[in-house]
């Protein structure tokens, strides 16, 4: 059966990250290779909106890694 992968996978920096760690492939299997239409990153691209690198496929943001740590 032909696989159905997100058409924006080649340009997605997060997809590139999912490719180099086995642990992260669960994202690829649940979003990029399956129902990519529910990926929030995909939805923003289709709407012509900016896609922050820190935006995960489930719509949650990665923490601000550059922010000073709280004591």
């Amino acid at each position: 059966m032909a696989s159905k992968q997100c058409p924006h996978a080649a340009d997605c920096p997060l997809f590139a990250a999912f490719q180099v760690r086995a642990f992260l492939r669960i994202w690829q299997m649940n979003y990029c290779d399956a129902t990519f239409e529910r990926c929030v990153r995909y939805q923003r691209i289709v709407e012509g909106k900016e896609v922050p690198l820190s935006l995960m496929p489930n719509g949650k943001q990665l923490p601000d890694l550059g922010a000073p740590k709280k004591e």
Partner: peptide
């Protein structure tokens, strides 16, 4: 957007953040 991506150029910090996000989303799965 630039602020939200601050620090993501640190690949090790990014890897840790991705791991935490993965555990939060998929749990023990």
């Amino acid at each position: 957007l630039a602020r939200s991506e601050r620090g993501l150029t640190d690949t090790e910090a990014l890897a840790r953040a991705l791991e935490a996000a993965t555990r939060a989303e998929f749990g023990g799965g």
